[in-house]
Every structure is written in structure tokens, then in C-alpha cells.
């Protein structure tokens, strides 16, 4: 299996750097980074990643709005939300917007990689 290509969207360089390190150690290829929801949408469309990891609270456009728009593109990719906001209404909204997994911050390397592996199980 070739390396899975991932797009990371988080307004904080801090989390993008941490996430990139975790993913690269886990054998993923990070093909792009976005600092807000609008940028994430543009890059998802142009870079055709296999996985998009979206932070929820971002400027310009939230991760949830970006997820909704990216799902509408009907591209063969999986959307994973990543946030420190863990209360149910937000998680539910994220799933309705098209996310198929939810990673809770603070980032835990094992949990992040496990979540991504579990995506493979239900590949259509």
C-alpha cells in the first residue's frame, strides 16, 4: 500500500508541526497544511489528499463549515476532525458535516495513529 497522503488544517503552527511529526513517524505523507477553513477547502480540492484533518476552531471559516463543503466535492477522501472541544453537540455536528472520526486534543500520538488506521477498516 502506498503512503496515505494527508492534508492538515489548523490555525496554530504549533499543532500543525506536532501533527506533521506524528503522521510522518506513522508512515503518512503530509502533502499540505492550511491555516484556516477556506484554505483547507482550496487545498483539499487541488491536492486530492486521502485524508483531511481539520481543526474545529479556525478563523475565516470553521473546520465544520470546511468539512461540509469538502464533503460536497464528493472526492474519495476521509475527513477527520481534531479539536479540544469534546462536547457532544459539536462532535455530532462534525459528523453531520461529513467527518468520519474525531481526534481529541491534546494530541496523543498513539490515539492519532489508531484513529487513522481505523479509517482503513471501513474504506468503501
Amino acid at each position: 500500500m502506498s503512503k496515505r497522503r494527508v492534508l492538515i488544517a489548523d490555525d496554530l503552527l504549533f499543532f500543525r508541526a506536532a501533527l506533521r511529526d506524528i503522521l510522518e513517524r506513522g508512515g503518512y505523507e503530509v502533502i499540505g497544511e492550511a491555516a484556516n477553513g477556506a484554505e483547507a477547502f482550496d487545498k483539499a480540492r487541488t491536492l486530492s489528499p486521502d485524508i483531511v484533518i481539520l481543526d474545529v476552531v479556525m478563523p475565516v471559516k470553521t473546520g465544520i463549515d470546511a468539512a461540509r463543503e469538502i464533503s460536497h466535492l464528493n472526492m474519495p477522501l476521509k475527513i477527520v476532525m481534531c479539536s479540544s472541544l469534546g462536547y457532544e453537540p459539536i462532535v455530532e455536528e462534525a459528523i453531520r458535516a461529513g467527518a468520519c472520526a474525531y481526534i481529541l486534543k491534546p494530541l496523543n500520538e498513539e490515539a492519532v495513529l489508531q484513529t487513522l488506521v481505523s479509517l482503513e477498516a471501513d474504506t468503501p
Partner: peptide
């Protein structure tokens, strides 16, 4: 968002 970012990073 500023508080949220500081919280998130500090937690990590």
C-alpha cells in the same frame, strides 16, 4: 479563539 488556542497548546 485566542483563549481557545492558548488552552489547546498549553494542554498539549
Amino acid at each position: 479563539r485566542h483563549y481557545h488556542s492558548i488552552k489547546g497548546m498549553s494542554a498539549s
